[in-house]
Design a protein around this nucleic acid. Structure first.
Length: 648
RNA sequence: GUCCCUAUAGCUCAACGGAUAGAGCACCUCUCUUCUAAAGAGGAAAUGAAGGUUCGAUUCCUUCUAGGGACGCCA
């Protein structure tokens, strides 16, 4: 819609001898300023050397002239005779029919108001398109890899990883909604000094070594907790003595060399981590196509760096091999240590080409590899991407570092070295406990397993939403009570609004497409006698709450597109919350079934079903609005990586 | 020391260079004989400082202040 209005205005400007302008069209906060607005007149004022009001009035006049040629009531085929321009472009014709009027307000805003019928027809489009509403073709044909999550084996999966995987999953889904072919991947550190420290503790710290056999028979979570503790213990020993440092370095070498003395234990413990991570992925709804491991890229990485050394891309310095980033306004970094091991950056020289190669294999047109990693790596990636591009020129501009902001503790710093971490699953479990209390109170008629399911999904929603709503790069100051809300601007609020809408639909006796898909036996009490598409409300006159809610519905496709192009799920969060608020206000003020206005007693009102057996226009419209809102909430939440609940 | 990021209401966060700077939490009032009160209505409350660019600046530029991060053998 936005783009079509922009196109219309661009056409008008062309006729006014101002070609080549794509005006910026936005949705004003205040609906008194129209359904859409543009500031193009003020932008042009300088170049045209005319007052903005004058330009705005000219544009308004031109549009109004076209409007007068297009009657809203006449069928489309009659209009072609009247306007040559309209007949040239069917889209601008469609737009002209949707526009009620154009206002000009100082200092030069052009405010465009849509006719009510256009809102109604857009609402019908939502119901027709169902889950496809909001998807677009903007990035069709683009192959994009999103790498996210990235937990290291032998270390904790902490709330930072949880936020990272939440952001990555949502960004990937948003890109899919824009038509891109998206490959979901992760990259995990399964070799290196941090593993060596952990293994050192497993082998050399008596208390830990003793526990090993016992842990082997424990469940996945106990195993990784144990490894996390071992890593912290090994890490502190490492910092304490030079001797341990040497020993750890020795273990590190042995892992790279697959030395039988340590390798079996390494493999076993590595698998513990991976098994555990699988459980977390399932819990948060992430499925990867491919997990990359440092252990599989360090050799090619090292090889590629050594090749680059021959070409003069890398340099020897103090026994190590570095990339001289300073030559390019960046900073120098070590890629291969003087011991001959590739560093993180060295391994990336193996990862980058592999990722791009895979992307080219799995998609038709590889366009971008998005690596979702913390902000502290911003400088790191500048250097690594530059080095990579010099090594493999075809990789230039194919990689993007999406900063996933930190989750910071309000008090103290989180560090898996010191063992001072908040575990991802701990957070989910705490949220679940808190929600379960609410569920027990509000949904006491549900079975225990139903209550448990509701609490689990709502907990994941609460945590994910809290991580997404603030924008991917901003840091979150984490505090359990403050960060994870169940009321107001929260995941559960959106789920609740959805469940509420679905509940009304169940009671309305109309059949909803979603019911049929999920199995009819889910709603045995629903009498499927009316289809949504049978609802008639074409000439219904909307009240302010209905208009506000319907107006918001039509913004969904633009919002999804914007969130996708900005790689910012927060944009969608803000929108969905506004939509839910607007629906809930409508819900509080008006009765859907029965068409009665609150607070009148319902029993005294005429039934929603008139004598003819048809719903009246108000009920019909409100049910359609309810169905469309539910649809958009479901699609929107899916794009955030959040599941909906039919009842809660 | 060099470079990067951040600074908005008591707290946590929004706001393509646009119109009266929005929400949520917390606080104070109200609303369940009504389709799910995990809801709704109302109240009070903010752009770190100083300059500049612009018709218009929370947004862009400069300086300052305060936090955080990166800067050679960790990942």
């Amino acid at each position: 819609m936005k783009n079509q209005i922009a196109a219309l205005i661009a056409d008008v400007l062309k006729d006014l001898d101002v070609p080549g302008i794509t005006p910026e069209v936005t949705v004003p906060e205040d609906s008194g300023h129209g359904d859409y607005t543009t500031n193009v007149a003020m932008i042009l004022a300088k170049t045209l050397k005319k007052p903005p009001m004058e330009i705005a009035l000219q544009v308004k006049e031109a549009i109004t002239r076209q409007l007068s040629l297009v009657s809203h009531k006449k069928p489309i085929q009659n209009i072609h005779k009247g306007s040559q321009k309209a007949s040239q472009k069917s889209t601008s014709l469609y737009i002209l029919q949707a526009i009620d009027r154009v206002d000009v307000t100082p200092p030069g805003f052009l405010n465009i108001f849509l006719i009510e019928a256009s809102l109604i027809s857009q609402l019908q489009q939502v119901l027709k398109a169902k889950e496809a509403y909001g998807t677009s073709q903007i990035k069709v044909g683009e192959g994009i890899m999103v790498e996210y999550g990235d937990p290291n084996t032998h270390k904790a999966f902490h709330i930072g990883h949880l936020r990272n995987i939440t952001i990555g999953e949502s960004v990937a889904r948003l890109l899919e909604a824009a038509g891109a072919e998206v490959i979901h991947t992760s990259y995990q550190g399964d070799v290196g000094m941090h593993i060596a420290k952990c293994l050192y503790a497993l082998l050399n710290i008596e208390a830990i070594y003793h526990e090993l056999d016992h842990v082997r028979t424990a469940h996945d979570k106990a195993k990784v907790d144990f490894l996390g503790g071992a890593y912290a213990a090994g890490s502190s020993k490492f910092d304490e003595s030079e001797e341990v440092k040497k020993e750890v370095a020795g273990i590190n070498k042995k892992i790279y060399a697959k030395d039988p003395q340590v390798y079996p234990l390494y493999q076993e413990s590595r698998q513990w981590s991976l098994d555990y991570f699988e459980g977390v992925y399932t819990r948060v709804g992430t499925v990867y196509k491919r997990n990359y491991f440092e252990g599989e890229v360090y050799e090619t990485g090292k090889h590629n760096v050594l090749e680059g050394l021959k070409k003069g891309i890398f340099e020897e310095s103090e026994g190590a091999i570095i990339f001289p980033g300073e030559k390019f306004g960046l900073h120098n970094r070590v890629f291969i240590t003087k011991e001959g091991n590739p560093t993180y950056e060295g391994k990336d020289m193996g990862l980058g080409p592999l990722q791009y190669h895979d992307l080219a294999k799995w998609t038709k047109h590889p366009v971008l590899v998005i690596r979702v990693v913390g902000p502290e790596q911003a400088g790191y990636f500048q250097v690594v991407f530059e080095a990579q591009s010099r090594l493999f020129p075809e990789l230039r501009d194919k990689f993007y570092h999406l900063i996933a902001g930190w989750v910071k503790l309000k008090h103290g710093k989180m560090s898996s070295r010191s063992g001072n971490v908040v575990l991802g699953e701990w957070l989910l479990d705490e949220a679940k406990k808190a929600i379960l209390k609410i569920v027990k109170k509000n949904a006491s008629n549900y079975t225990e397993s139903e209550q448990n399911k509701i609490a689990e999904k709502a907990a994941v929603a609460a945590v994910k939403y809290a991580f997404l709503k603030v924008g991917p790069t901003s840091e979150i100051a984490f505090d359990l009570k403050e960060s994870v809300n169940f009321q107001g601007d929260s995941g559960p609020y959106l789920q609740y609004t959805y469940a509420r809408a679905r509940s009304v639909l169940r009671k309305s006796q109309i059949s909803n497409p979603n019911d049929q898909k999920e199995g009819k036996d889910k709603n045995p009490h629903t009498t499927l006698d009316i289809e949504i598409s049978d609802l008639r409300f074409d000439s219904y006159h909307l009240n302010p709450e209905e208009r506000a809610a319907a107006r918001l519905l039509t913004h969904f496709p633009d919002v999804v597109a914007e969130a996708g192009s900005r790689l910012s799920p927060g944009v969608l969060c803000t929108y969905l919350f506004k939509l839910a608020q607007s629906y809930n206000l409508f819900y509080a003020k008006h009765t859907i079934l029965g068409g009665a206005e609150k607070p009148s007693a319902i029993s005294h009102q005429p039934s929603a079903k008139a004598e003819s057996g048809k719903l009246n226009a108000a009920s019909s419209f409100r049910l359609a609005l309810t169905a469309a809102t539910a649809q958009i909430l479901k699609t929107g939440l899916y794009l955030l990586g959040i599941e909906t609940l039919e009842q809660m």
